[in-house]
Simulated assay, not measured.
Amino acid sequence: MEQKTKPRIGITIGDIAGIGLEVALKALADNRVLHYCTPIIYGSASVVNRYRKLLALENFSFHQVQAFDQLHPKKVNVLNCLEEELEFTPGVPSPATGALARAALLRAAQDLKEGHIQAVVTAPIDKDNTQGEGFQFPGHTEFFTTYFNAPESLMFLVADGLRVATLTGHIPLKEVASRLTADLLIRKLTILDNSLRKDFSIQKPKIAVLGLNPHAGENGLLGTEETEIVLPVIEQFKNKGNLVFGPFPADGFFGTRSFQKFDATLALYHDQGLIPFKTLAFERGVNFTAGLPIVRTSPDHGTAYDIAGQNKADETSFREALFAAIDILRARAGV
């Protein structure tokens, strides 16, 4: 049944030399998506048309718009963010593909801030290739956090019952230990707890925290961060009635599937959380930026230049990201 009030979901085109637009179009080719949202691709109608032909999506059609009063609620809409025609080769990023990705992202963020769209799903970008005026960030997470003046945000990977957040994000591994403080841990755990309640409708979240060192420090033998920083914060949350546990050794925690006993897991650095998450849920994983006043999701994979334009990319993660955005909007609205 079609929703009475369908949210407008912006979809940024990403780096068109990668697989982002391919997976987006494959997901949107299923007309059932239109029962739940009005999708708007931010990018280029000519590029969308080229990929439609390249992928032989004969039943896929779209509606080109210049303004929001032209949106078609029962079609995929495409909004041009650059006027000039783009020459590009799938699998080969260029300044032109980076410029389009940046223009689409900036326009979608502006429309999100002004309330023209209710959420955004971002296709993958080449972080280096996208750098330029208006976008000088390590990634989408940092961009949206700054753009919406949020004091803090949280990289939160979700797939069915598996939810993994990261304390630190896109920073060099050698900096992780120096960034680990009680204050940071408190802030991130607070965002995670609030998001589980508000965005996933879990009334009493149960959260696991991983250790930094091998074997979670082995009682100080292999490192003292767990005993000096992590454990006191966990006890502080417990004393306030929160269900927070740990620190757990990361290898055994995932190896024994202990994550299934918790509503979410907080990893202390990027790869500690993303490697097991992508191993367990790569095809259906969603990257959600928690802690923001807006809803932003993305598939959990990158540009995958090596298979771009070959009709090999799996659209499941993108589809999950689209429906996750809709579900989070509904949870926030109490629907």
Rank of each mutant, 00 (worst) to 15 (best):
A108V: 09
P124T: 14
D128R: 07
Q136A: 11
F137W: 02
P124D: 15
G132A: 10
P124G: 15
A123G: 12
D111K: 04
Q118S: 13
Q118N: 11
A123E: 10
E114Q: 13
A109R: 01
K113D: 11
H116P: 00
D126M: 00
A119Y: 04
N129A: 14
V121E: 08
F135G: 01
D126T: 07
A123Y: 05
A109I: 05
H116A: 13
I117Q: 11
A123W: 02
G115I: 03
Q118H: 14
V120D: 07
A109G: 15
I125G: 03
D126Q: 09
P138E: 14
Q131W: 00
L106W: 05
A123D: 10
H116L: 15
A108L: 09
T130A: 13
F137G: 06
E114T: 12
G132E: 06
P124V: 13
A108G: 13
Q110G: 07
V120R: 04
R107V: 04
T130E: 02
F137S: 03
K113V: 00
T122W: 02
P138W: 11
E114V: 01
T122K: 03
P138Q: 12
F135Q: 04
G134N: 10
K127F: 09
D128N: 10
D128F: 01
F137P: 00
A119S: 13
T122D: 08
Q110C: 09
F135R: 02
A119N: 08
R107L: 14
A123T: 12
G115P: 01
V120W: 03
G134D: 09
P124H: 13
V120L: 15
Q131V: 11
N129V: 03
G134P: 01
P138I: 08
E133R: 05
I117C: 14
I117P: 01
L112Y: 04
L106V: 06
D111G: 07
A108W: 05
I117R: 05
G134H: 07
G115R: 04
Q136G: 02
L106G: 08
K113N: 11
K127D: 10
H116N: 14
I125K: 03
L106C: 08
R107D: 06
G115W: 03
F137V: 00
T122P: 03
V120P: 04
I125T: 03
L106A: 07
A119K: 05
D126S: 14
G134R: 06
T122A: 15
L112N: 06
I125D: 05
D126R: 08
F137C: 06
F135M: 08
L112K: 02
I117E: 08
D128I: 06
K127Y: 07
P138A: 14
T122S: 15
A109E: 07
K113M: 07
A123R: 04
T130W: 01
Q131H: 06
I117Y: 03
P138C: 12
D111F: 06
N129F: 00
L112F: 05
P138M: 13
A123V: 07
